[in-house]
Amino acid sequence: MKKIIIYTFCLALFIPNFQLKAGGGWPIPKGRGYFKLSQFSIRSDAFFAPSGDIIDISTASIYITSLYGEYGITDRLGVVGYMPLFARATLNEQVTPNGDLLAPGDAVNSLGDFDLSVKYGLITNKPIVVSATLTFGLPFGNDMGGDTGVLQTGDGELNVMLGVEASRSFNGGKGYVNTLLAFNDRSQNFSDELRYGFEVGHRITEKINGAIKVLSVNSLNNGSDFETPSNGIFSNNIEYLAITPEINYSLNDRYGISGSVGFAASGKRVLASPNYSLGVFLKI
């Protein structure tokens, strides 16, 4: 049976604000905002090798508590931030069936890599709205953590990503479609990336919205595996096709709960297990 796999923690670490979201091509109105406190987790003993094959690895995990926020400065211009305030990466110890220790376990706790973005509405008064987002990926995470020095809560490089999102609503505003195209310019010999995706969402009940997000991350393979400073097998030339169903439940006009499970149909250099995310959001 073909295994359906999941995208890695790298997705959560390095590109979360380009997971398509309800904002999409719509700019954030002046004085309005959306904030979400989330817990993300992934634990996997399987890995998409650079060949795309799934191989067994020592069980690795990552847990991230993050704050995500969007805020409108004007009706066209807004700021977006993703701040992983606590990131924990672990690696299981390895023992023989007799209990002999082969390799000790390891863990690291730190901040994760932050993303700070500026979002501008290019087309705002048409059925199809378009916005552009410029994101700076700030390497606040640890790319050589733990006693082994191999655990990562970040990739150690500053990247700049330019994305364009186009969206339109349908069914009287109950549903929406977002599309994304983005170029991620990575530094320090990491390969640049081309990302594209789409999201379809619809109101299920008065309080429940559902969405399915599809995101493809593709390396341009113009970096160097030999020369990247980071020592992570997860860092460079990461590729995946992620499928993420999400449910949002509105408790009232301001607060709600959001949950999602991420799956990946294919990938390279990413963990191959489901990831889970649960959060509470606030709309102002």
Partner: peptide, 11 residues
């Protein structure tokens, strides 16, 4: 869910 370090038995 902030996981503890687990154990893998290598066979």
């Amino acid at each position: 869910v902030a996981g503890c370090i687990g154990t893998d038995i290598v066979e």
